[in-house]
Design a protein around this nucleic acid. Sequence first.
DNA 1: GGTATGATTTAGGCATTCCTAAAACCAGCC
DNA 2: GGCTGGTTTTAGGAATGCCTAAATCATACC
Lengths: 227, 227
Amino acid sequence: MPLSEHTESVQDYLKTIFDIQREHGRVATTVLAERLGNSPASVTGMIKKLAALNLVEYEPYQGVVLTPAGEKIALEVIRHHRLIERYLAEALGVPWDQVHAEAEKWEHVLSEDLEDRIDAVLGYPTTDPHGAPIPRRDGTMPPPHTTRLSDLQTGQSATIAEVSDHDPAMLRYFAELGLRPGVDVTVVAVAPFGGPLTVRLDDVEHAVGREVAGYVAVCDVTSAGEE
Amino acid sequence: MPLSEHTESVQDYLKTIFDIQREHGRVATTVLAERLGNSPASVTGMIKKLAALNLVEYEPYQGVVLTPAGEKIALEVIRHHRLIERYLAEALGVPWDQVHAEAEKWEHVLSEDLEDRIDAVLGYPTTDPHGAPIPRRDGTMPPPHTTRLSDLQTGQSATIAEVSDHDPAMLRYFAELGLRPGVDVTVVAVAPFGGPLTVRLDDVEHAVGREVAGYVAVCDVTSAGEE
DNA sequence: GGTATGATTTAGGCATTCCTAAAACCAGCC
DNA sequence: GGCTGGTTTTAGGAATGCCTAAATCATACC
């Protein structure tokens, strides 16, 4: 059953379930409700519909997991979303921290034909502007980065691979700091008790809240520092 | 009240009413229903909603006319539609006769910001790929062309200014014939009793049904021929 | 002037997707 | 092992926008 057979609502649910599943495993009703901005009661209702369509496995009171069919559609939606983000940033110059909201609307109206054209114009990119991988046409996607900025020890250096685009305010904050994919950082100090990290970016030091830093995925740890 | 405050359905109704109004003046329920692909009963219902929003003037059994507020929104939607058509054709290479269907979906998700970016990338174009004028940002639009191909006499030459994009099959036919904006045509023969016109296009002669030709808007009549 | 015919509106329903309020469930704690 | 607090589901309802079938209207013709 192709993507376009499903309502925007269904597409949004599947996309969001996929995202949460990557972080938490099984997806609880409340978490899904909060992420979607709907009431838990509404989410229960829609979940039942998704289960009837064989897009999720649903055990009452136990949350949901995507079926292979559901995952396939989720990946198609995410591919649309990330390709469009990339396109908006690269071809139309939309600021890095604003593409997400725009893509949220466009992802639902992208035809296969246009998807291919955009993909080709961009030269078949593999990541979106936030560094998140773009699912491939065959429905596969590289595994997510697991090291977070907040996992680093004092003295360690790394290259930012990806920043979270869930929270628009956070995204603006990252943009101001210059914390974006490809940028090198060094951890200068780590406060105890979950306090802030001090990181060096372009020879300027910034204190970053540990919770905020936890949103930043990092790969390619460059130097081990004092470890 | 900005465009985005209205549902896609409302936007489609207003756009379509505007189009029909240009041809027929007051818009009858049945005509609107047919163009939208809805039942007349549904259209009556929506019309009442539009009237309650002060977007149309509605007299039961007498059809509708757009109010200034309704016309403003219609022009914004049409501007979106035609800018996107142009963009798809020029920037993404979507074939000339396929942009309409694609734009039909995209027109509803275009933000003001992106509208401006696309407008600038294209160099502020004044017509869409079918030759139809793009409404200006201030809500004005050049008057439509009134001369039709079927109005020409034998021997007259003219430059195609615009072709209708209402009917996809017609559009494909025009594309095959090479009958597109900017192309010069000469009428070689006019059959009596509403029969076909024979027109010369690039030294090739084509017989075109009179009704079909009536869909082609023409401007700049070049030579008067035997007239 | 009555009447047929087509256009239009009303009446009654259906599907989607959301909501609030109330009931049911589950788990951890005394 | 019962209680309690948070989670989840059920119940009942609202808005949108579409439908068919049945009534009503407008008009053109005899």
